[in-house]
C-alpha cells in the first residue's frame, strides 16, 4: 500500500509542479504572485477540449495549440493588468491579479456554463499491474510529459540566450536593462512560457480526470502556489520539488492520518518548512540592505 500511495502522490505532485512552475517563473522575474495562473490552467483545459471535440484537431496538435493559446492569454493579462502597475506597490499589483482571476473565471462561467464538460480520452484506457502498485497509461503519460516539460524548461533557461537574459532580469532588473536586455520582452516571454506550462497541466488534468469546469483552477491554483513557495519561490528546481513533495504529503496525510485532514496536512507541512527554512526548501536567503 505504501508504494501505491507513493505513486499516487507522485502523479498528483507532478501536476502541482507544472502549475507551480508558472507561479515561480513570474515571481522570479517581477516578484508578483500571479493569481490568474489558476485560471490560465483552466483556460488551457478548455482550449484543449474545444480543439479536440469541436474542431476535431488531433490530440497532440491540440495539446500544443492549447499551450500556444494560453501563452497568448497570459501575455494579454500581463499587458492589461500587470504592466501598467509595474511601478506601483506590489499590493496593488496583487489586487489587480486577483481581479483578473475573478474576471477570467466568471468569463468562462458566462460563456461555457457551469456543467462539467467531458474530455474524451485520447488513449485507450489501460492499466499496468506490477508487484507493488498499479498505474494507468494516462498516469504514465502525465508523468512522462511533466518531466519532459520540466527538463525542457531547465535546459531552455540554462542553455539559451533568452534563458540567460531571464536569469539576469530575475537577479537585477535595472542592471540587466543596462546590459541591453529588453526587460519588457523578457517579461512577456516569461508569461508566455509560464502560461503554456499551466495550460499543459490543465489539458493533462483534463484527460486524466475527464472533466473540465470553469471553477477547476481554484484549488489547483492555490496548491500550485503553495508548492512554489514550498520549494522557494522564484526557484525553478524548487517548484518541481515543492510540487512533488506537496503531492506526496497530501496523499500520505490522507492515507495515514485522516482523509478529513488531507488538505490541512499539506498546509501544515508548508508552515513547518517555512518555519525551519523561511525562504523555502531551495530558496536563497536574500541579503537585507539597510
Amino acid at each position: 500500500m505504501f508504494i501505491q500511495q507513493l505513486m499516487n502522490g507522485l502523479v498528483l505532485g507532478s501536476t502541482y509542479a507544472l502549475i507551480a512552475l508558472g507561479y515561480t517563473m513570474v515571481y522570479g522575474i517581477i516578484e508578483l504572485i500571479n493569481f490568474a495562473h489558476g485560471e490560465i490552467y483552466m483556460f488551457g483545459a478548455f482550449a484543449g477540449l474545444i480543439l479536440v471535440t469541436v474542431l476535431k484537431v488531433p490530440f497532440f496538435l491540440a495539446f500544443f495549440l492549447a499551450m500556444a493559446l494560453a501563452s497568448l492569454l497570459g501575455i494579454t493579462v500581463e499587458y492589461l493588468a500587470y504592466r501598467p502597475l509595474r511601478r506601483s506597490t506590489r499590493l496593488a499589483a496583487l489586487i489587480s491579479a486577483i481581479g483578473a482571476s475573478i474576471f477570467l473565471q466568471n468569463l468562462a462561467l458566462w460563456r461555457m456554463g457551469a456543467q462539467p464538460y467531458t474530455f474524451p480520452s485520447p488513449f485507450e484506457p489501460k492499466v499496468y499491474q506490477t508487484a507493488f502498485f498499479t498505474i494507468s497509461r494516462v498516469e504514465i503519460i502525465i508523468l512522462l510529459f511533466s518531466f519532459l516539460l520540466m527538463i525542457g524548461l531547465s535546459l531552455f533557461i540554462q542553455k539559451t540566450k533568452i534563458g540567460k537574459a531571464m536569469r539576469a532580469t530575475a537577479q537585477d532588473k535595472d542592471t540587466a536593462s543596462l546590459m541591453g536586455i529588453n526587460i519588457n520582452k523578457i517579461i512577456t516571454i516569461t508569461f508566455a512560457i509560464g502560461s503554456a506550462l499551466g495550460a499543459a497541466a490543465g489539458v493533462m488534468v483534463g484527460i486524466y480526470f475527464r472533466t473540465v469546469t470553469p471553477s477547476m483552477g481554484l484549488m489547483p491554483g492555490l496548491k500550485g502556489f503553495v508548492a512554489a513557495v514550498l520549494g522557494g519561490i522564484g526557484n525553478i528546481p524548487g517548484a518541481m520539488m515543492g510540487g512533488i513533495l506537496l503531492g506526496i504529503t497530501e496523499v500520505m496525510g490522507a492515507a495515514y492520518i485522516s482523509s478529513q485532514y488531507r488538505d490541512a496536512v499539506a498546509f501544515a507541512l508548508l508552515i513547518m518548512v517555512l518555519l525551519l527554512k523561511p525562504t523555502g526548501l531551495l530558496g536563497r536567503p536574500t541579503q537585507e540592505k539597510v
Binding site: 500520505m252 492515507a255 482523509s259
Partner: peptide
C-alpha cells in the same frame, strides 16, 4: 479530482 489515496 484525485481520489486514489482514499480508494487505496
Amino acid at each position: 479530482n484525485n481520489f486514489k489515496p482514499q480508494l487505496t
